[in-house]
C-alpha cells in the first residue's frame, strides 16, 4: 500500500507519454471518451482506423503486463443496476462535456485550458458527492 503512490506516478508518466505521442505524432488530443464517442455516433467516421488502433493498444497492453501480477482485483460493484446507471451517466456526460479524465483532465489542464479545468472541477465535485450519497448515506458502493 505504501508504494501505491510511486506506481501511481510511474503509471501517470506513461499515460502522459501516451498523450504526448498521440499529440506530437498524429496531432490529436488523447481523450478516451472522444475517441470512443466518435466511433459510436459516427462523427469520427473518417478517422476510424486510428481510433480502433488506439483502443486496441489500451485493451491489449494490460493483457501483456497482467502475468507479472498475481491477481488484479478491480473491486467493481456486483450490482448490475448500479453498473448500468453509472455507464449511462459516464457515456452521456462525457459526450455532453466533450471530454473526460484524459481529454479535459490530462490534456486540458496541461495546456492551461479553462474548459478543461472547469470540467475537471465539476466532475471531481460530482464524483465526491456521489461517493458521499451512495457510500456514506445509502451504503450501496
Amino acid at each position: 500500500m505504501e508504494q501505491d503512490w510511486i506506481w501511481g506516478l510511474v503509471g501517470g508518466l506513461l499515460i502522459g507519454l501516451g498523450g504526448a505521442v498521440y499529440l506530437l505524432a498524429n496531432g490529436r488530443i488523447m481523450g478516451a471518451s472522444g475517441i470512443l464517442g466518435g466511433l459510436v455516433d459516427g462523427s469520427g467516421r473518417d478517422t476510424w482506423k486510428e481510433r480502433i488502433a488506439f483502443l486496441a493498444g489500451v485493451f491489449l497492453l494490460p493483457i501483456f503486463i497482467f502475468p507479472a501480477y498475481n491477481s488484479v482485483e478491480t473491486h467493481v460493484s456486483q450490482n448490475w443496476l448500479i453498473v448500468i446507471a453509472a455507464g449511462l451517466l459516464v457515456g452521456i456526460g462525457t459526450r455532453f462535456a466533450n471530454g473526460c479524465t484524459s481529454g479535459h483532465g490530462v490534456c486540458g489542464i496541461s495546456r492551461f485550458s479553462l474548459r478543461g479545468m472547469v470540467a475537471t472541477v465539476f466532475y471531481i465535485m460530482a464524483g465526491g458527492v456521489a461517493v458521499i450519497i451512495f457510500r456514506h448515506m445509502l451504503g450501496w458502493v
Binding site: A32, V118, M125, A126
Partner: peptide, 21 residues
Amino acid sequence: NLVLGSVLFGFGWGLAGLCPG
C-alpha cells in the same frame, strides 16, 4: 453542456469508480 455533462459524468464516475479509459 460542459458543466452539466461534467456533473453527470462525475456522478457516474463516483458511482462505479470507472471512467472511459
